[in-house]
Design a binder for these strands. Sequence first.
DNA 1: CCCCAGTTGATTGTCAACAATATAGGCGCT
DNA 2: AGCGCCTATATTGTTGACAATCAACTGGGG
Lengths: 215, 215
Amino acid sequence: MTSADRAFRVLEEEIVSGRIPMGTKLGEESLASRFGISRGPLREALRRLEGRSLVVSAAHAGVRVVQLKTEDLIELYEVRESLEGLAVRLAAERGSDEEIRSLRAFVDSQAATRAPDDRDYSQGIGDEDFHYRIATVSGSKRLQNLLCGDLYSLIRLCRFRTWTIPGQKRSQEDHERIMQAIEERDGELADLLMRRHVAAARARFMTAEAASTKL
Amino acid sequence: MTSADRAFRVLEEEIVSGRIPMGTKLGEESLASRFGISRGPLREALRRLEGRSLVVSAAHAGVRVVQLKTEDLIELYEVRESLEGLAVRLAAERGSDEEIRSLRAFVDSQAATRAPDDRDYSQGIGDEDFHYRIATVSGSKRLQNLLCGDLYSLIRLCRFRTWTIPGQKRSQEDHERIMQAIEERDGELADLLMRRHVAAARARFMTAEAASTKL
DNA sequence: CCCCAGTTGATTGTCAACAATATAGGCGCT
DNA sequence: AGCGCCTATATTGTTGACAATCAACTGGGG
C-alpha cells in the first residue's frame, strides 16, 4: 500500500464522517506535513478524491471539500430511490436462498436488539446496514459501488442535517415488509416498498429542512 | 487550464472512444513524453481517471484501461434502465414547456433527417443524443452527471460489441411514444416506456453476445 | 477619505533526480 | 529438459527544489 493510498483513505473517511466540514479548504502543505509525506503523493490523493466528487478543485485556487446544497441532497435521494429499488428487485429475483436467509437473520436481530427507547441513532446505523446488505445481495458490483461507494458517502456527508426524527418504528416495519417480499421472490413488490421507504426518508428530510429554514 | 487537465481530457476521450483499447497498459513515461509534460502532472491525470473508474491501477504494476466483461455491461444496462426511467419521469413532471417544445423539435428533426436506408450509425448517435437531452431536461445535475458522465462513457467503451442490429425503426417509434408521454406530463408512463426502450437495447446486446460466444 | 496600482507573500503547478519494487531473463540444480 | 532462484532492468513511488499564478497589503494619487 502506497502513502498516497493511505492519505486518500484517511481523507475520504474524514470527509464522509464530517470531521472535515463541508467547504473546508485543503491546503497541500499542511496536509502533507500532517501525513508525513511529500506534496506529490498528497496531490494524487486529492485528485482521486476529486474524481469521486468529494472535493472540488479550481486551478491555482486549491481544493475544497464539496459543499452540498439542499437541492443536491434532494437529487441524491431521488437517485438513491431508483437505485435501491433496482437493488432490492435484483436481490429478490437473483439472490441465493442462503443470502436471503442471512438477510432475514439480520432483520430479526435488528428487531430484537432494538431497545424500546433506543431511538435516534443506533436505528440510523441499523437502517444503513440493512440497505448496505441488500446492495450486496443484489449481486451487481456496479450497483453496489454506486450505492455504497458514492451515494451513501455523499448522503452521510450531510447527516447532521438529516438527524431528524428517524421514526424508527415505521422504518422497522418497512424493513419487515420488504424482507417478506424478498422471501417471496416478489421483486416488483420489493421494489415498490423500497421506493416508498426511501421516499419517506426524503420527505422527512425535506419537511425538517423546510422547518429549519423557516426559523 | 493546467497540463494535467489537458492530459486528463485527452486520455478520457481516447479511452471512451475506444482509440485506446480496453486492457491497454498506460506507461507513465511514454505518455508523459507524448504530452510533452513531466510524470508528475501525468500521474495526477491518471489518478483522476482512476477515480472515475476508467482505469484500474495496482501498486507498482502500473495502470491499465478498465476491461469490462459481459456481466459488467449487463449491470451497466440495468443501472441505466433505472436511472433513465427516473430521468424521463423528472423531465415529464418538472421540465418547462419551453424545454419540452425543444425536445419535441429535436425528435421531429430526427425522424425527418433519417434517410430510409440510413441504418447502423447515425441512428446510434441520434439515439444517444435523445437520451442525453432528456437527462438535461430532467433538471437533476447529479443524475445528468451520472448518466452522461459515467454510464454512457462506460457503455460507449464497449460500443464495438454492441454494434448489433440497431432496429432503429422500432427505436424511433419508442422515442415518439416517450415524447408523447412527456408532452402529456405523464411521468409514470414515460418511465415505463423508457425502461422498456433501454431493456430492449439490453436484450439486443445480450442475444448478440450469446450468438457470438456460441460461435 | 476612497480608490487604484505595484509589490510582497503564500500557495499551487511543474520538473528532474533518487529510492523502492515488480517483471523478465539467465543461470544452476535436479 | 524442466523448475526454481537470482540478478538485471525497467517501471513505479517519492522527494525537494524551481517556476508560475493568485491574494492580500501597502503606498500614492485623486
